[in-house]
Structure formats: structure tokens, C-alpha cells
Design a binder for these strands. Structure first.
Lengths: 360, 360
DNA sequence: TATCAAGCTTTGAACGTTCTGATAGTCTGT
DNA sequence: ACAGACTATCAGAACGTTCAAAGCTTGATA
């Protein structure tokens, strides 16, 4: 194995100068720098990560938990996020380490073992549960971390100390609802999660607000609103019965907004069965505006593409980049504060679809 | 930071004895061992991974590439595999590191940078392309690795040197076809990948063989078989037109076998539209045997659950466990040979469904 | 009693890097 | 010509662990 000292010998300098070329090239004169770089190339020298870690105390590794897929698994786009994160981290010379998530207690146990082991510089949390203990534990033990998602349900004074990136579900759903209204739909229902004080109510509010601002009659009364709403647990294909109930209650229903693609698929299937539009021969799905009821989702996953329903697309590349940026700044010693750069609420993109079903 | 020497001081022994307790406890007398363990607990000592790596030369880290989700992405179950792998590795004190896959050349470049850096002990490859250069490169450069999937298309003498785990697609599809025959279906078509000499033809052969063994008339003639087959590119919702074509060609068709859940969904949708069975009121999907055409998939992903079609389930936990075991053995210095324990073809499980559509 | 083996423990070096402080060389201004 | 400041380089220590080998008991054997 070729070390920094071998390079030094070949280049005729001390080992420290080689180290300087690697870490602070600007303090080395150009002549020697070139000589050393040449020696590095000739010898095929690669810095030893372990030694670097041992001495410098940081590992350039981010840890990310991955939960069993059977979980309510908010994201059909989790693997997409993983790729973006690995990519963003890689650009920065960092690596992403996976750990298998189980429950909060086990997670914390694991954090404990990562701590002080100089094995992981920072942790990226996502998919927080309500009143999650993990962020507080991490804060308390001065373990660096950043959050994908907002720290819903945490006291304000704590939340301020937590760096997070999230996508604005409220704005996304609101825009989608407005787009439906612009398309002439005026009887728009909502089928979403039953028990989710954070993300769920945020998206629900998006729908409600759009209706109110457009002066849709039933939006002015909470009781009326409730009758245009159905609660359902997250899950692929969920919401079929609820869609039926909603349509029975409101025969004039012409659109349904869902906070996830998983639910939207179920709702779309139920709707298409009840409205018979899938059996018409000349494919009415070619133009979704011809659909008796338009169903919309969230995440713009492959499901939305395959079933050709409109969906809200999360800018996962930006999420990943911002997370890595935040962690970098923290590692450099910048303190987390109330400034906006520690709490990024990214705007999602509306993906409308007029094209035919199918495709990849 | 508390080190091995601090523990030694408290326990009144030398640092090496502490190290022995950690690595080879059996050579330390019980009395001292207990004393040291107590000191470890009291001081909250955690071994420093970086130092251990530096000295011992191995990192206990496995690298795994993750490709952008837009790719033909063979697995709607990739994240599930990730979880299993992280879990299996974790049980063994190992970690999984992600790297962002792009193309073969970039991958190899990355392998090169991982090499000698004592940053990664072994690489896990999956989703090989046809005539993939990566396994050969890794062999040539003596970088340890194992494969999820078979080294299709590699010369036998090389393939023998490559440790791999795969799931027997042939057996899975064959069993599924036999199950359809047992259910009284005798006109069974196949819609699968157009260009895939490895996995694709393996699964196709499963269908063909089952038909032949059951003496289905059209199975004896290759030309007839071809007319019961449609080729299609992988993709969620793909295969709609092909399903229509197949049904037109064979009005007596009563089942379609697909090599992936993604395709099965498209096929199922096309079939349900053409056979009008989704519009019947008393949910014929409650019992799939009542379906005019049964569609089957592969992977038993959430899609199969949601749309209630039968599918072949891959034992991902076993795959992960075996991969980790192989890598462990190689790390211990065991040479890869022609023995069966280096080439594991695992039996998948058939998941039949009689229950209603929907649910999680 | 001297010798040897076995069981347990210790000592010192080594892994490859970065950190710290020192040294030589060059330039500037008086 | 000389102090002072700055630049480029160097030498040695340090990070926390494991490796290699040597040392100390103890008990059995000749």
C-alpha cells in the first residue's frame, strides 16, 4: 500500500508537504505542488480514509435510516430520494450509510453506538412520527443531524434548533385544487389520512384554503366541508370504499384531491368502476379533462405516470442538496439559528396530465 | 473521548488485555474479563471504528450501488431489499454504504477510488446489464464482491469465480403456471420483456416448460407458442396494448403470466377494461377464480397486494443473509470455488390470492 | 530441584494520516 | 546591514486500535 510518505520520497519533499497539497494546496508553491501531484499519479496513491478519520476525527459519512417497506411507507419515492442523497453527498466527497430502522428505542440505541465512534458525522432523519423522541434525543446528546420533513409537534424553542428541509404540501395541494377549479371543476372532494396532525392536516388545509379563496359555496361552513371529506389510512389502493361513499353522498362530485399517489390509485379505480369510464372504447383517458371525476395525487411517483393522473412533484434533488449543505455548514461549526437557511420549505411542482394512460 | 487505555487504567490491566476482551474474550481469564467489562460499562467506552480500521485493514462496510429510479428499475422491491440487507449486515456488525450509480464506466471509476482506501471491504452488485464489464473488472483487480443475480452471459470459467445469490425465476414462473393449470386454466398466454437474454428468457422458459409438461396442445409447437406470447419493455402499466392484441388473437385466453408486477398491472387493467368485469356491481374480484382472465405477476410487491393478483415472492431476507454470509467467508480468506455454497439459487414462494382487491 | 509447557498478561511497535510548533529562506523598510 | 514579517517547508508527536513477541505465573514432569 502506497502512503503519503512514499509520495514524499518520490517527490523529494517531507510527508507533511504532501498532506498540505491534499488538504490546503494554496499554501504550497506551485512548483512543488506540481511535482507532488505528478508523484501521486505515478504511484497511484489514494489517501487512506481510516487514517484520515482517526486523526481528524470526522468521517464524511451521513447515516440514514431505512424502514421496512411494509410500513405505511409514505414514499413510493423513497428510493428516488436515496439516489439523490447518495448523489448529492458524493459530489461533496461524502458517503451515505444505511441503517435498518425498527422502532424509536432501537434507533436511539443505535445512535448511541454511532456516537463517539467517529463512524458517522451526522444523521439524516426522515419520516418522523408524531411526538418523535429521536430529534430531542439527538439535540440533547449533541449529535449532529438534519431533518427531511418538519419537526411537527415539537415545542417552538426546540424546533428552531433543528435544521430541516421540507416540501410545502399545503402549497402543492392548494395549487392543485386551484388548477382543478381553473379546469372548471367546482365540486371537489378530499380523501386523506385519518390520523396525522402534521403532514396530513397541512395538505388538507391546502385543499380547504383553495376552496375558500375561490368562494366555493360549501367551503364556508365546516360541517359542509366535512361532508366533502373522507378519512382513510395510507396504503396503496386504499380509499376505494371511501370514494364510493363520497360519490354517493355527492352525485355532482367532479374531482377528488388525495394527499398521496397510493390513495389516488385506489380512489381512481373506484371512481372508474362507478362511472364506467374505463369501458368506453375510444379511451377517454387520453384527455383527463373528459373524465367525469378527476383524481389527483401527491409525489408524482411511477403510479401517477402509469395511471395518468395529475400529481404534485417533490423536488427531491433540491431536498438532498439542501440537506447536505446544511450538514456541511454545521460541520464547519456554524451554529443553527432562526435564519431561513436552516429551515427550508421548498415549493413542489404541479404535474398536470392530459396524455394517455400507460407508458413507462 | 474514552479510549482503551482509560479502560485499562480503571480495570488495572494493560491496554492489550482490554483489546483481547473485545476481540478474543476466550483467552482472557473470567475474573479479569468481568472486571474489564464493568469498567467499559462505567466509562461508557465505545471502540473507535477508524482506529480499528486503520490497524486491522478492514472496515466492515459493504458498498451497494443505487440507480436513479427512472431506470427500468427491475424492482419495485429494491427498497425492501435495501432494508433486508442493512438489517442482515447490521446483525453482523457490518454497515451498508450507498453509492449513486450512473453508468458502468463511472461505477468502475468509483470502485477504483474505493480500492486500497480501506474504506469498503466488499461490493454488492445487483441489476447487472448484459455483458456487464463490472464483475470482470472487480475480479481482475481482486476487489471482493458478491452478486445479487446470476452472471448471465459471462464465460463459465469466470462465472465460477463469482459468488452470487439469485432467486429461481424459472421455477417461480413454472410453479405459477402450474397453479393456473390446476385452477382449470388451459389457455395461458405470456407477456414479457422483449430484450433480456438472462432473466427474461429464464422466466419465459418457466412458462413454456409448465405448459409442455402439462401437455397443453399449443405448447408442442414453437410457432404456436409464439402466438401466445407478446414482447414488451419493462415499465409500470406497460403491456396494455399487447394484452389487447393477445386477447384478440385468442378469444379463449383465460390467463396471462407476466414476469413482473409492473407489467401485470398494465395487463390487468387492459384485461379488465376489455372483459368489463370491473363494472359488475358485486365485485367479482373477491374471488379471482371468477375472473375471466387471471393475470399473474412477479415480486409480490405492493402492487400485487393492492390489485389482488397472484405473484411470485422473492425471499429477500434469505438473499440478504446469504450475501452477507458469502462476503464474511471471503473476508475470512475462504476461496471462492465451484461448491454450491458460492452459488445459491433460492426458491421463491407462490402467493395466490383469493381475497378482495384493495387494502394495504 | 530444575525444566518445560500452558495459560494469561504485558510491552512496544505499527497502521497512515493531520496537528503543532519549529526552521530556514525571502522580502520589506529603516 | 539588520530586525521584523511573511512564506514555504519540515520534523515529530498524536489519534486509538491491533499485531507480534516477550514475560510472568503456575503446575506438572523428569
Amino acid at each position: 500500500m502506497v502512503s503519503i510518505r512514499d509520495v514524499a520520497k518520490v517527490a523529494g519533499v517531507s510527508h507533511q508537504t504532501v498532506s498540505n497539497v491534499l488538504n490546503t494546496p494554496e499554501i504550497v508553491s506551485e512548483a512543488t505542488r506540481e511535482r507532488i501531484n505528478k508523484a501521486i499519479k505515478v504511484l497511484g496513491y489514494k489517501p487512506n480514509a481510516a487514517a484520515r478519520r482517526l486523526r481528524s476525527g470526522h468521517s464524511d459519512v451521513l447515516a440514514l435510516g431505512i424502514s421496512p417497506a411494509s410500513d405505511r411507507s409514505p414514499s413510493p419515492i423513497f428510493d428516488s430520494f436515496l439516489h439523490q442523497l447518495a448523489s448529492a453527498a458524493g459530489k461533496d466527497g461524502k458517503k451515505v450509510m444505511l441503517y435498518a430502522k425498527t422502532d424509536q428505542d432501537k434507533d436511539i440505541e443505535l445512535f448511541e453506538s454511532l456516537r463517539e465512534q467517529s463512524d458517522v458525522d451526522a444523521i439524516i432523519l426522515n419520516g418522523l412520527e408524531h411526538q418523535d423522541r429521536r430529534p430531542l434525543w439527538l439535540l440533547e446528546h449533541h449529535q449532529l443531524f438534519a431533518l427531511f420533513g418538519r419537526p411537527w409537534g415539537l415545542p417552538q424553542e426546540k424546533a428552531v434548533e433543528i435544521p430541516w428541509v421540507d416540501v410545502d404540501g399545503f402549497a402543492g395541494i392548494k395549487e392543485m385544487t386551484q388548477r382543478l377549479i381553473a379546469a372548471g371543476r367546482t365540486h371537489i372532494g378530499y380523501i386523506g389520512w385519518s390520523s396525522d396532525p402534521g403532514v396530513g392536516s397541512d395538505r388538507y388545509d391546502g385543499w380547504k384554503t383553495a376552496l375558500k379563496e375561490a368562494d366555493i359555496p360549501y367551503a364556508s361552513n365546516d360541517e359542509d366541508l366535512a361532508s366533502w371529506t373522507e378519512k382513510v389510512e395510507e396504503g396503496l389502493g386504499a380509499g376505494m370504499e371511501e370514494a364510493a361513499a363520497l360519490m354517493e353522498r355527492h352525485p355532482d362530485l367532479d374531482a377528488i384531491v388525495c394527499p398521496s399517489d397510493n390513495i389516488a390509485v385506489g380512489v381512481l379505480l373506484a371512481v372508474s368502476r362507478l362511472t364506467k369510464y374505463t369501458v368506453v372504447d375510444d379511451d377517454p383517458e387520453k384527455d383527463i379533462s373528459a373524465r367525469p371525476v378527476i383524481v389527483t395525487g401527491f409525489d408524482n411517483s411511477r403510479l401517477a405516470r402509469a395511471f395518468a393522473f395529475p400529481s404534485v412533484s417533490q423536488p427531491l434533488d433540491q431536498v438532498a442538496t439542501e440537506l447536505v449543505r446544511m450538514i456541511n455548514e454545521i460541520l464547519k461549526g456554524v451554529k443553527v439559528s432562526n435564519e431561513p437557511r436552516w429551515h427550508r420549505l421548498l415549493k413542489p411542482t404541479l404535474v398536470w396530465r392530459d396524455s394517455a394512460v400507460g407508458g413507462k
